[in-house]
Write a protein that binds this DNA or RNA. Structure first.
Lengths: 208, 208
DNA sequence: TAGATTGTTAATCGATTAACAATC
DNA sequence: TAGATTGTTAATCGATTAACAATC
């Protein structure tokens, strides 16, 4: 019943970039990093960086900036990236291969415990060390490995039925790489990643 | 010197979803589609859909909605998706394989004319029919094929130097899939696609 | 100390939403 | 016609930006 401070989505989107930059500073031995510097590197306004970093709860020192080590820990904690999360990936195609091989995800707690497909020639094989199972085994494997995230990389015509399987398997978070809006129960969260919308922005920018 | 109407980025981001849905309606034989229906399907407010569609210049008919065929043509025209664009892809890894194989891009005018890498065992091979060249051949091949877009899928430590090659090759639009901010001349447009920021949103949503 | 940088409080800006007359 | 849907004009909301005192 307390007025919950909902963290602003645009701020959350920027945090990973900050984290990346701050990590670089750490590896160069910096103890403090200023919002001014971060802003300059990322072409943002210093005040925006300060506002964003405020949501982590870390306070900076005037003249010096923010303590690098604490800030890294705080951002990671805020994003829950200091917590390992088991994920299944639905659809074992090219995109699944790209995502399972992407080191950034592993580094931020995402652990692939299985890939799922229907194609008989894929089942039993592995992609980047992740075993491919038949989609019918999803519920069993998801439970066995404690999967809490499902990543959807199936062709869009199978998006909804795959999502239904995911829901049936008891998974409450979906990262949807298809271009379909999914019909989901209220207690399932979903983040849609639409590559064509980024492409649209680029196309419009090109004509100016 | 006329006050240019800058199209709002959030609106542009939504257009591809509208287009997809309207195309479905077209394939089902609908002549008109209402903003109300689109809103319901995509869980948006009807007024937002109407505002967004207004940027295409198409006017709807009260009680019936928007003319499907005209609307499709207008959205595609607005996004310049009715215009073929030649693209090179830098880095011939898993993500490049996923992107070159993604039918949605081809369907919206994106034509891959070459992939570029430095790994000797990749050069000369093809991914989804796209030949892999050595990065040193970028300028030559880009000119030969009239490439206007470069897609960056290299490991992030090579992001900046790859971008420099792209700029040297005379390409003015970059779609950047690395997590690095690029230093670019003012006349080069860049759209960054950061998969970790979507992951960050999902992680925060899961903890609520 | 002097001055760069912080966090806070207020102002601005832009996007979303509401209200409603027009109309097919 | 009646009523659903449109486009316009105004209100609200939230994010970004500005101003500035506090401080190391």
């Amino acid at each position: 019943m307390t007025k919950q401070k909902i963290p602003a989505v645009p701020s959350i989107r920027r945090l990973p970039s900050y984290l990346h930059l701050i990590r670089q500073a750490e590896s160069e031995g910096c103890e403090f990093i200023s919002g001014t510097l971060i802003a300059k590197e990322l072409h943002l306004e210093p005040i925006q960086v300060r506002k964003d970093l405020a949501i982590t709860g870390i306070v900076g020192k005037p003249k010096r900036g923010y303590p690098v080590e604490q800030l890294i820990a705080a951002i990671e904690h805020f994003l829950d990236w200091d917590n390992k999360k088991n994920a299944v990936i639905i659809g074992a195609g090219n995109l699944a291969t790209a995502l399972t091989g992407y080191q950034q995800f592993k580094a931020h707690g995402l652990n692939f415990v299985g890939a799922f497909d229907t194609s008989p020639d894929k089942i039993g094989k592995q992609i980047h060390g992740v075993t491919i199972y038949h989609i019918d085994e999803l519920a069993e494997q998801a439970k066995k490995h404690g999967a809490t995230i499902a990543i959807l990389t199936v062709p869009s015509e199978f998006a909804q039925e795959s999502a239904d399987c995911v829901v049936k398997a008891g998974i409450k978070a979906i990262w949807n790489f298809t271009n379909r809006k999914l019909k989901l129960p209220d207690d399932v969260v979903c983040q849609r990643e639409d590559l064509t919308s980024g492409y649209a922005i680029l196309c419009v920018m090109m004509n100016e």
